[in-house]
Design a binder for these strands. Structure first.
Length: 488
DNA sequence: TTTTGAGTTGTTCGA
DNA sequence: GTCGAACAACTCAAA
C-alpha cells in the first residue's frame, strides 16, 4: 500500500469513466482501478450525442437521472463520490486530466459505432500524452468482432450465430463489487444532476414510469431475482402472453448497464434454479438476440438509418403524418395495437409480442417507414438500445438481416385472440373497451349494436373506427412488396 | 468450388 | 372445426 504521509505529494488518481455501465458489481474497469491501490475518481461522462451517436430519448433521460442518483449513493457508501461531466468524451476527459493530474483512465467498452470511434480516439490521445488508457468488457458476452463464420466473415443469420455463441465456451464469471474505494481528497468540479434537466416537467409524463420501474443496480438485482424465482419456470409457455408478467423485464437495466449479461448468464446456471431446459434455452436465446443485434450493428454502422437489404431502398412507403400520429397515440382502432402503444406511452415499455404486432402494423398495414417507428421507440422506451431497436425494426419490416419473410403480415385480430384470449391486456390499457365481452374485445366493429351500447362503446366516439381495413391493407402491402421486387 | 440443408416469433385458402 | 400447402425464391453457412 502506498504511504499516506500528510506531507507526501498527492498521488495521481485513476479516472474511471461511467457511461452505459451504471453499476459497481461486475464492473471490470472499476475493479481494476481499485486494485491499483491508488485513489479512484469515478466520473460519469455524459456525451449526450456529442460523440456523434444518438442522444438518449425522453424515457431514457428519465431513467438516467434516477440511475445516477442510485449510483452516486452506492459509491458514497464505499467512500467515493461521483463526478458528473457533460460533453464530448475526449475534451471532457482531457479537461479532467488537467483538473486532477490523473495519469490513468479506465473504462468499460461501448459498442455503438460512435462510442467505439470516440473511445478509440480517446485511447490514442491518452497514450500520446503518456496517460495509461485501458478498456474492459462487460456489456456483451462476446466482442462483436470475435464470432465469425468459418470463412472469417460476420454472421448474417441468427441460428448459426447462436450455435457459434454456444460452442465458443462459457462466458467469464462475473466479479463482485469492490468493498471500498480509496477516494481522492482534493475537490473536483462536478455538474449537478438537476442542471442536466433529465426529468420531464410541464407536463410530467413520468408517473407511469415511476409506478413500473426501479432504476439502478439494486432494482436490477431484484428484477433478476424475481424472474428466476417466479417467472422463468413459465417462460417458454407464457412468454408470448402480454397479460402474464413472465418476461424478465431486464432490458432497461441491461441498456443502462445496471446488470451485465455475464451476471445473468451465470445466474441461470445456479443449482437452485427450478426451470426446465426449454425455459432456460428460450431465455438464453433472447440474451443471444441482444448479442446478435450488436454483431449486426458492429458490421452495419448505419443500422438505424439504412436498409440492410438495399432492395428496400426502392420500397414505396406512403408517408402520412396523420397515420403515424394515430399509431403513436394508440388510436388505430385495433385493440391489441392500441393497448401496446398506450402501454409504451404510459410505462416506457411494451411486451415483446405486442412490439412485433405494433411494428408490423405500422410498416405493413400503414406502409410507414420503419424509421418512423424506430425513432418513436427510441424516444419512448426505457430500454431503447442502439443495436436491438433498429435491428428489430428492420427484422419486422423485412429489410433486415435474417428478416421475417415479407409476406408474414401479422393479423392484429388473430394475434390478439391468440395471445390475449381473455382480453386482460387490452382491458388494462384500453379501458374504454373493458366492458366488451371476450368475443368482441379484439374486434369491436363486429359487435352488434346492442352489445356495443351495453358496453358503453360508441365506435368513432369513445373508441376509434379502424384506420385501415386489415384485408385491404394486407393486399396493398403485398402489392408494394411485389412492386419493389419488380424494380430490381 | 460445389453442394446441401436450413432459415424466431404467420396468415390464408381450400379440402 | 381442422389440417396441410402455398406464400418466393434466395441467401447463408458449413461440409
Amino acid at each position: 500500500m502506498p504511504a499516506s504521509r500528510p506531507d507526501a505529494p498527492p498521488e495521481p488518481p485513476v479516472l474511471v469513466l461511467f457511461r452505459n455501465d451504471l453499476r459497481l458489481a461486475d464492473n471490470a474497469a472499476l475493479n481494476a482501478a481499485v486494485k491499483t491501490g491508488r485513489p479512484v475518481l469515478p466520473v460519469f461522462v455524459f456525451d449526450d450525442g456529442a460523440d456523434g451517436g444518438r442522444p438518449p430519448g425522453g424515457a431514457r433521460r428519465w431513467w438516467l437521472h434516477h440511475a445516477l442518483e442510485r449510483l452516486c449513493a452506492s459509491l458514497s457508501e464505499r467512500g467515493a463520490g461521483l463526478i458528473l461531466r457533460r460533453g464530448p468524451t475526449l475534451a471532457t476527459v482531457l479537461s479532467l486530466l488537467d483538473d486532477t493530474k490523473a495519469n490513468a483512465v479506465f473504462w468499460n467498452r461501448r459498442y455503438d459505432p460512435a462510442g467505439i470511434s470516440a473511445d478509440s480516439a480517446l485511447k490514442t490521445a491518452l497514450r500520446d500524452r503518456a496517460v495509461e488508457a485501458t478498456s474492459f468488457d462487460g456489456q456483451l458476452l462476446h466482442e462483436p468482432s470475435r464470432l465469425t463464420t468459418t470463412t472469417g466473415g460476420p454472421y448474417k443469420v441468427y441460428s448459426p450465430f447462436w450455435r457459434a455463441l454456444v460452442s465458443s465456451g462459457e462466458p467469464r464469471a462475473p466479479v463482485a463489487a469492490p468493498k471500498a474505494i480509496r477516494p481522492l481528497h482534493e475537490a473536483v468540479a462536478s455538474d449537478t444532476l438537476e442542471a442536466w434537466s433529465l426529468l420531464p416537467t410541464a407536463p410530467d409524463w413520468a408517473g407511469g414510469l415511476r409506478d413500473t420501474w426501479t432504476p439502478g443496480e439494486a432494482g436490477a438485482r431484484q428484477r433478476l431475482a424475481d424472474f428466476l424465482d417466479a417467472r422463468l419456470e413459465r417462460y417458454a409457455e407464457s412468454r408470448d402472453r402480454p397479460a402474464e408478467a413472465v418476461t424478465s423485464r431486464l432490458s432497461p437495466h441491461l441498456a443502462h448497464g445496471e446488470i451485465t449479461p455475464f451476471q445473468i448468464w451465470h445466474a441461470l446456471a445456479r443449482p437452485d434454479i427450478e426451470a426446465g431446459a426449454r425455459d432456460l434455452e428460450k431465455f438464453r436465446k433472447e440474451i443471444a438476440w441482444r448479442e446478435f443485434s450488436y454483431h449486426l450493428l458492429f458490421h452495419n454502422r448505419d443500422l438505424a438509418s439504412k436498409n440492410v437489404n438495399r432492395d428496400f431502398d426502392d420500397f414505396a412507403w406512403r408517408p402520412d403524418a396523420g397515420l403515424v400520429a394515430a399509431w403513436q397515440q394508440g388510436r388505430t382502432g385495433y385493440p391489441i395495437v392500441d393497448a401496446g402503444m398506450r402501454q409504451l406511452w404510459r410505462t416506457g415499455w411494451m411486451h415483446n409480442r405486442v412490439r412485433m404486432v405494433a411494428a408490423s402494423f405500422l410498416t405493413k398495414h400503414l406502409l410507414q417507414h420503419w424509421r418512423e417507428g424506430e425513432a418513436w421507440f427510441w424516444d419512448t422506451l426505457v430500454d431503447a438500445d442502439p443495436a436491438s431497436n433498429p435491428a428489430s425494426w428492420q427484422w419486422v419490416a423485412g429489410s433486415g438481416a435474417d428478416a421475417a419473410p415479407y409476406f408474414r403480415i401479422f393479423n392484429p385480430v388473430l394475434q390478439g385472440e391468440k395471445f390475449d384470449p381473455d382480453g386482460v391486456y387490452v382491458r388494462k390499457f384500453v379501458p374504454e373497451l373493458a366492458r366488451l365481452p371476450d368475443r368482441y374485445i379484439h374486434k369491436p366493429w363486429e359487435a352488434p349494436a346492442d352489445v356495443l351500447s351495453h358496453a358503453g362503446v360508441k365506435l368513432g366516439t369513445t373508441y376509434p373506427v379502424t384506420i385501415v381495413e386489415h384485408r385491404k391493407a394486407r393486399t396493398a402491402a403485398l402489392a408494394a412488396y411485389d412492386a419493389m421486387k419488380g424494380t430490381r
